[in-house]
Structures are given as C-alpha cells and as structure tokens.
Design a protein around this nucleic acid. Structure first.
Lengths: 237, 237
DNA sequence: TACATATGACTGACGGGTCAGTCATAAACG
DNA sequence: CGTTTATGACTGACCCGTCAGTCATATGTA
C-alpha cells in the first residue's frame, strides 16, 4: 500500500502526453454559457491554469511548503484533477521549471550575432530582453526557485545547466570574443569568463526577491553601469 | 523528491552523530558506570553543537524539509534538548543565520580603507577574504540559504540587508569612489553601483551550490578577470 | 426528436505517513 | 535533599496521494 515510488528520472513525456490528449472535452468557446466551470475548458487550458497556479504557489512558499490543495484551489480545480495531469508534486514542479525556461533561451538564441551589429549592442539587447521577459514577469520567481531548490533537484540543476547556462554562456563568450577581436573591449576578461556578463542579472533577481520592498534596485542604471564596465569604461579603441 | 521514507536513509542519524566529532556520549570512559552522561559539557558547547548540526541539516535540505530529529541526532542530543536552547524551529534557523554573518562583516570592516593602499588591492583582499572565509567554508551554504529562504523570512532579509548588505555596499562604494578620485578606475560605474563589485561573488556561491559537480567554476580566474573589468582593463591612468 | 446507455473527466473525503513541539520521567548536579 | 538539565515516547495537526462515486457529454436506438 502506498508504495512510495523512488523514481529518479523526471516525469516521462509518455503519461503526460496521454493525459493531455484526452480529446473530447474542447469546444469550451462553443458552449461558454453553460456556466459551471467544470469540464468546460480544453484540457490544455486546464493544464496551463494548473501550471500558473503552481508557479504562484511554489514561488510564494518554496517547494516543500507549497500545498497542492492551494494549487488546486487557485487553479479552480479539484485536488484529484492535479493527478490527472501530473504524476505527483515533483513532476508538477519539474515540468513547471523545465517548461518555462526553454522558450526564453530560444528567443535569446534568436538574437544571434550578426557581423553588422556591434557586440555591445547585442549584449544590450540581451539585457533588455532579460529585463522584459524575466525580471518583468513572474518568471523571475522561477529563476529564484531554481537557485533555491536546485541543490535538492539534481535533475533540474543538470537540465538547467545544459539547456540554459551552457547555451547562454557560449553565446556570451562568442559575443565577447568578437568584441575583443574587433578591439571594442579593453580586456578579454568577459570573453574568458562570460559568467561576469550575467552575474549582475542574477544579482538583480535575488535583490528583487529579498530587498525589493526595503530598498528597490534601480536595474536600468545598474545594467547601464555594468555595460560600461564590460566595455572598459571610458576606454576607446 | 518526496523526501519521505526516513528508514531508507540507513542509520543516517547515528553515524552522523558519531562523525560530528565524537561528541554526545563522550566521556563514556570517564563515567562508564553511570551510563547516560547527560550534562557532561558546558551549555555553550551544546548550543554550538546544535547550531553546527542545524547548519548542516538546513543547508542540505532547506528550511522546511530539515527535520529537527536529525538535527538533534547529529548534535548528539535528544530532541527535547533543542527546545531548552531554542524556542522553536524558526528561532533556531534565525539565530543560525544571524549569528554567523556578523562576525564576517566585522572582519571585512576591519580591512578598512587606508590612504596608502591602492583601492584595487583592498578589493582584492576582500575577494580573498570572501573566498577563504565564505566559499571555503560551510558558510557558503548559509549565504545560499538566505537567498533561498529569505523571501519567506522578512525579518532575516531585513536584518541581512541592514547588517551585511548595506554595510558591505557602503564600504565598496567608498573604495570604488576613492579609486575613481585617484583616477585608477576607467569609469565610475562601480562607485555608483557597488553591487557590481560583489555580483560575481554571489554567482560563485550559486554556481557552487548548483553546478559544482557538473562543471566546477575556476573561481580564482573568475575573480581575477573581474578585477580587470572593475579597473577598466588595459586602461592606465 | 426523445429517450436510454456508455464514457471518462472530474470530484473531494479519507487513509496513512510525517514531524514539530510537549511533557512525564529520569539523571546530574550543588 | 531540591533544583536544574536532559530525555524520548507521544500527540495532534498537517498534507500528499488515492479511489469510489458523480455527472456532463457523447453515442446508440427507435
């Protein structure tokens, strides 16, 4: 009874796909007047509602303290329904974290390096994108969640490193390398340690989470100053 | 994760208690007949043992998932004893976090600015101190704990801001300001946003917690490169 | 169209494990 | 002795995951 499965790997796409594909249902738009919310929304929408509620809940309380009863309530769904869409609490959490990060990386990857744009401008665009798409949205909480819970979710940490950190740093390194080659940066520091380029973004996320209501951080100014540092200040080629 | 299933751990508590340094039960030889040698060490030492065990436990599991039974076992003490020294779990956690940070700040404050030392050298000393006293010790876990749990412990966040962040940033700002005045920095970016000086340290702590066993970070190199950035690279006054 | 039957998405009360905190008891002191 | 300190079994609340039952909708029948 209640054999707690160990399950090391993360949720399989298999059962998830099975749950999602529960066709039928749909046509919510066709019969919106029916009233009772139950069974009126497409399955995908319910999934989405659950994920959004889960983000709020996990962000506010952390993984352990988040209660699935609250997630269900916030999603306008019964507790049991959660288990139709997600295997268990951990699967819900992992899917939440994993699913919300790759889209950003794809958009960032799109802002690729082109020979006619100054590297510093690409970095500036990257900062702007990060500000708009992460710091300006609930996604910032996701980032904090990864920092907070990552050590206890090796699978998430690994995924995050592979899909986000490695790719992002490679891009930064490429950009910085080009800038150094063009003689636009005063030192190759940023090219050797692209982590230095993103460090202030991390700081901004953390600051926001901890001190935003004690001493808000002027992020625009911070990032502009950081850009000055990266390029070498008043230094000109 | 569902960290349930305690039994599985296999004598976690026991060997940990033994490993911690032969405390608890010690003096068994001195008072073998009496058996349970409860009150054998000064109260202060017990407190310390509990705090150390708590650090290990909280760092490994996070606040919510940390179990006081394990803390007690690791400290070589009965559960009830914890409550003789600390009001409750939260008080233990807060005292742990609060008590371990001020000493560092004091030491950092001591490395004060003197007119005959180059500001960049002060920063370098600060980095070295941070590396040795934080990154090189279990204290780094404390920093991660604050980042992770801070949002849910406003009192800790506030204390941390007042006692550590504000003081630290003021010092950094002072140093950077002096460097700018002396014409040793290429830009006043670091003086206006001293957060930029410490951002890579934060990154190092987080990286260590998340990716140290996937892709270790070469911290010496990172910080040296960062110092180059701060000063303005190849730029010379 | 009207009615009967089938389906399965959804529900929510409940079982059972877990763990923070308590307290009656015991040991160590002075 | 009485007092102080320590113990660990115990309790009660809490919450994850389950499952027997419900009911909106779809399908079958005439």
């Amino acid at each position: 009874m209640s054999q707690r499965k160990r399950r090391a790997g993360m949720g399989t796409a298999a059962d998830r796909a099975a749950a999602v594909s529960g066709r039928g249902r749909d046509r919510a738009d066709a019969a919106p007047a029916t009233g009772l919310g139950a069974r009126t929304r497409p399955a995908a929408a319910r999934r989405q509602a659950i994920l959004e509620a889960a983000l709020t809940e996990f962000a506010a309380r952390g993984y352990e303290a988040a209660r699935l009863d609250d997630v269900a309530a916030a999603a306008g769904v019964a507790k049991g329904t959660l288990y139709l869409y997600f295997k268990d609490k951990q699967a819900l959490f992992e899917e939440l974290v994993l699913g919300a990060l790759t889209p950003i990386m794809d958009r960032i990857g799109a802002a690729r390096l082109s020979p006619d744009i100054k590297p510093l401008d690409v970095i500036e665009m990257f900062f702007a994108l990060f500000q708009k798409e992460v710091l300006g949205t609930p996604r910032k909480h996701l980032l904090r969640l990864i920092i907070a819970e990552g050590p206890r979710f090796p699978s998430i940490a690994e995924f995050y490193y592979r899909e986000v950190v490695m790719r992002g740093l490679a891009l930064m390194r490429e950009i910085a390398g080009a800038a150094v080659a063009r003689g636009e940066f005063a030192t190759d520091a940023a090219a050797r340690f692209p982590q230095l380029i993103v460090a202030p973004l991390l700081l901004a996320v953390i600051w926001d989470g901890l001190f935003s209501n004690i001493a808000p951080l002027e992020i625009d100014g911070l990032l502009r100053a950081h850009r000055d540092l990266i390029s070498g200040g008043g230094w000109q080629p």
